[in-house]
Design a protein around this nucleic acid. Sequence first.
DNA 1: GCCCAAGCGGACTGATTGCTCCGCTTGGGG
DNA 2: CCCCAAGCGGAGCAATCAGTCCGCTTGGGC
Lengths: 217, 217
Amino acid sequence: MRSDALKNRERLLVAAGQVFEEKGLEASVADVARVAGVGMGTFYRRFPSKEALIEALVSEVLEATITMAEEAAEWPDGTGLEHFLQAVSAYQAAHLGCLPKLWCGDHHLVQTARLRVAELLADAQAHGLVRLDLTSTDISLLMWSIRGVLETTGPNAPEAWQRHLDLLVAGMRPTDAALGHRALSQHQVDRILSKRDRSVARAAGGGACGGGGEAGQ
Amino acid sequence: MRSDALKNRERLLVAAGQVFEEKGLEASVADVARVAGVGMGTFYRRFPSKEALIEALVSEVLEATITMAEEAAEWPDGTGLEHFLQAVSAYQAAHLGCLPKLWCGDHHLVQTARLRVAELLADAQAHGLVRLDLTSTDISLLMWSIRGVLETTGPNAPEAWQRHLDLLVAGMRPTDAALGHRALSQHQVDRILSKRDRSVARAAGGGACGGGGEAGQ
DNA sequence: GCCCAAGCGGACTGATTGCTCCGCTTGGGG
DNA sequence: CCCCAAGCGGAGCAATCAGTCCGCTTGGGC
């Protein structure tokens, strides 16, 4: 790939992150191209479709997530899980653009990430930091939950997720009172993830609401 | 209003709930009209715009939420808050259609709901069921969090929210360990809510992902 | 420095959407 | 039962968007 082509690819990815964070994933390809300072033709030479661009953004985040999980595994005495949750939430808060598509679809990196997280959970439980009746599917719920907060608070309250994570972590501590309902099975989570996500998006610039201006307008 | 007009209005609201749950808020007005068995003209005679239809759906849910909060206030010994959270989550799980727009915007009913919830929280704290360092803004985070779970699990795992709420409630119990970060101020929440939401529809059919088929097509 | 394959910009296309318009139908008061 | 205001259906309109095409430009191997 020629150097200018590579440069344009990077500029498109950066621009997409900005534009999607501002206007949501419904932002037009033309917008992204304009912010990147390239033409439509260039866009479609670098990415086969808008969807492919979004997937590239998602992959970036997922790869970073997996890296963070592996780094967290180095922490002693089962503290890795909490550090991971902190780190990944902070990272996602800084990459709001692709949030709505982040933990959906059956992206193979999601599977890897889930495995790493399950190891972190087991470690935390082995050291008595986390209640034993938690399963790795609960961590999936937790990720969706944090994403829900991030999508809503968006850039307006960039640290709100910390308070929410505090609460979740408090709930994960060992206690006498059992959780009232059964955890999701791995199979159920698989089914949720494999369901095709909806268009929007989610529009949602960034996602649901809150975060950005109303699609320009 | 003539009786047939009223009947059509109801049919449109029901159809909108179904269609938006399946395809997300990006579903077309024509889809809604077709499912309702009416023409486009009828739709626009009953609702001035698509947005107004969505707002009508949101208002239905908000009114039900406020009613549930008032009923919960009757529960003894500070148990109202938990019953409210259970009830409102279950209700929202049965009304996924308008989820992405539910706790956004500065809808006046949202303000009322927040007041009622603050009373429930104070009651629960007074009876020692909930830690004293929780504020009503934390409950807002909690609602966004549950919404995030509901949007993702959608109809595929209709009870997943229960497990998540179990975890949140466990985190709300009094404990020695303080929450590590400061709560959002009322003003911050106001600012988040008053920010115009993004088009999505968010996206988003229903919203983010998971819940329904890919926008039909 | 030459040269051409690779890259580029942006006008254009077809599909989709929210919404309007208009001629026909009908509920229900008198 | 009559009658007309209110209601209705659906074709049509303007705007928007993802994706294509094509003639011009340029990076970089030789």
